[in-house]
């Protein structure tokens, strides 16, 4: 509506975007030009000597490797992290849908990430899940005591920090452990499939996305509904994880396979059931709901009963 009043600003930004695009192209083109330049003198030489035909190929390989090294910035720079946010809206949509609907035999890393793991999805899915758990836990708590004149609703802000600790540590430390394990097994047994740490983090982050609708459903005060949603979410998220890591484990000893797969599934179940028990459990009659969260229930009980 108001945007039509001064269209110039709009244009300016669009142009800036275009320029950025153009610059990107320019950069890639210039690299190609360099390659061409280096090729040309060599190819003229190669005309004279047939034996030297392989030379330009080797040098090209070397140059490509060198340019690849140049591109990867060290981890303390901004550009290094920009690599993990080089993603577009439809990619994120595809990845979330892919993690919600696992297809038998479809490997999440190979089908959706394609050597371009992002951190955008994992980070914001975890953040959304943290606040979804905290908010719906509070609403569930409120609904449980609705209509009870003796109870006064108090927002429990501590749920945010506890949920954040639990979910972010799950989404970072479990992939770290799994990555170490795969690295170790890779050294012992030659495996064709190996995943980088970022790919594992990415899979774990996206596999949590199914819990966001589940957690919102937990608001409804029916225990059976909560357990059904947990089971469904666990199946979906667990199957995505297992199917993704199956190719990397396939050639290993059966014992290791069973241990790893059950470890992945158990940790996932632990997170889901733990969140449900902690944030959505029915408080025992006669107790304040806040006590479920508090570390020192006796002090709280005295404080609650005193006024």
């Amino acid at each position: 509506m108001a945007s039509k009043n001064d269209p110039f600003q709009f244009q300016e930004f669009d142009e800036a975007g275009d320029l950025l695009e153009a610059n990107r192209d320019a950069v890639t083109i210039s690299i190609e030009n360099e390659d061409l330049k280096s090729q040309r003198p060599r190819s003229t030489v190669g005309f004279a000597q047939d034996a030297a035909d392989e030379e330009p190929l080797i040098s090209d390989d070397r140059e490509e490797l060198l340019s690849g090294q140049k591109k990867s910035a060290p981890f303390w720079t901004f550009e290094y992290y920009q690599r993990f946010f080089d993603i577009e809206t439809h990619h994120v949509k595809e990845r979330i849908l892919g993690s919600l609907a696992p297809w038998p035999g479809k490997n999440f890393i190979q089908a959706y990430l394609r050597k371009n793991p992002d951190l955008y999805g994992p980070f914001w899915i975890c953040t959304t899940l943290v606040f979804a758990i905290a908010i719906s836990g509070n609403i569930a708590n409120f609904l449980q005591h609705y209509g009870n004149p003796g109870h006064k609703y108090t927002p429990d802000f501590r749920k945010v920090s506890i949920a954040a600790t639990a979910i972010f540590s799950y989404a970072w430390f479990v992939p770290l452990g799994l990555w170490g394990l795969l690295l170790w097994r890779n050294n012992k047994i030659l495996n064709l499939v190996s995943y980088s740490f970022m790919e594992i983090v990415c899979v774990y982050g996206y596999s949590l996305s199914v819990y966001i609708p589940a957690v919102v459903l937990w608001i409804l005060p029916y225990e059976w509904l909560r357990w059904v949603t947990i089971a469904v979410a666990l199946c979906l998220s667990g199957s995505v994880l297992v199917m993704t890591f199956w190719p990397a484990l396939r050639d290993d000893h059966p014992k290791v396979i069973i241990a790893t797969v059950s470890g992945i599934v158990l940790l996932n179940a632990l997170l889901a059931v733990g969140c449900k028990m902690y944030f959505f459990s029915k408080p025992e009659p006669g107790k304040e709901p806040g006590q479920m969260v508090n570390s020192s229930p006796t002090v709280k009980a005295i404080k609650v009963t005193s006024p």
């Binding site: 006064k152 108090t154 927002p155 429990d156 802000f157 501590r158 749920k159 806040g290 969260v293 508090n294 709280k300 404080k303 609650v304 006024p307």
Partner: peptide, 16 residues
């Protein structure tokens, strides 16, 4: 100054 302050029950504090 919300209800949470009275018994230190985890409402959003200033710092939070």
């Amino acid at each position: 100054g919300g209800a949470a302050d009275s018994d230190d029950q985890g409402g959003p504090q200033f710092a939070e």
